[in-house]
């Protein structure tokens, strides 16, 4: 029972001011209204602009059905991490002010074409989508909610990797989120991963590569080691398109590349194959 897309999604917080904007990628002048209508995709080069976690939820979840869970989990500066003239604590406060979020992920329950799913969405605006203890804990909680309500789990990744300022606590979130996926497997509930630009480092070496189905947005950077680190190691320039979603598809590490405008419908179609609500 594949449903037809019913509603046009309105991304709440209109970023467009004025009639025109310049594409971050191709630098063409594009018409703001068209850009919004295309869910913030450049009509000229198909560049998928970043969405905040809340915008992504608006895109994927039926209006008025999203219930956020465990908002009250806050990060701590467990190592009292200081560098240059700043501290992790200060950086956290800045990021909290900038995004209105407590940390780099939102989890909750919501409907996709009237059927409930558990969803977790990372936010690149919060310290580069880095994974620290809060992100790990909320992914664990999302897994537990999926198990509790017997519903599918969808996670949307965007991350530069582990959050250095939490030291080894952040590395262990890789093991934690992967152990959570191992737990979810026991209940035979679908786990769909959506990779968005960028998904690298520790996140790409843990839960993000463990979905039953892995979808990626076009042109996203997806890879383990950062391109600069690789270039320094092998002392040569990387070919164009290296570590793109398309590269990962070609090498067998993602199942499909899905344009943002088709994302909700495709996600629903896949869930429908894997799961009977």
């Amino acid at each position: 029972m594949f449903r037809k897309k019913k509603e046009k999604v309105e991304l709440v917080e209109k970023k467009s001011q004025g009639l025109w904007r310049k594409c971050e990628k191709c630098e063409q002048i594009i018409y703001n209204q068209e850009w919004e209508q295309r869910y913030r995709v450049c009509p000229n080069c198909n560049y998928h602009f970043r969405l905040t976690a809340m915008e992504r939820i608006q895109l994927l979840i039926d209006p008025m059905t999203f219930e956020e869970q465990d908002r009250e989990i806050y990060p701590v500066d467990a190592l009292s991490f200081k560098y240059l003239d700043t501290t992790y604590k200060e950086k956290l406060k800045e990021a909290q002010e900038k995004t209105g979020q407590n940390d780099g992920i939102i989890i909750g329950k919501g409907n996709i074409y009237e059927y409930p799913i558990e969803i977790g969405v990372m936010d690149f605006e919060f310290l580069g989508g880095s994974m620290g203890s809060v992100v790990g804990e909320k992914i664990k909680k999302a897994v537990f909610y999926a198990i509790k309500y017997k519903i599918p789990l969808v996670l949307v990744a965007t991350s530069g990797g582990a959050r250095m300022q939490e030291g080894m606590l952040s590395l262990m979130q890789m093991a934690k989120t992967s152990a959570a996926v191992a737990k979810l497997e026991q209940y035979k509930l679908p786990f769909i991963m959506i990779l968005t630009n960028p998904t690298t480092g520790g996140v790409s070496a843990s839960f993000a590569m463990l979905g039953d189905i892995i979808m990626a947005e076009p042109g996203a950077l997806v890879g383990f080691a950062g391109p600069r680190v690789i270039e320094q190691t092998i002392k040569q320039k990387l070919p164009a398109g290296f570590q793109s979603s398309e590269f990962q598809l070609e090498h067998g590490f993602v199942d499909m590349i899905v344009e943002r405008k088709n994302l909700k419908q495709t996600l629903f179609n896949i869930l429908d194959y894997l799961y009977d609500w």
Binding site: I73, Y74, V76, A78, E166, L169, M172, A179
Partner: peptide, 15 residues
């Protein structure tokens, strides 16, 4: 599994 699921430091109160 439980050991790794319990790793991390966070708070129920804001900074």
């Amino acid at each position: 599994i439980d050991k790794f699921l319990n790793m991390g430091k966070f708070s129920e109160k804001p900074l």
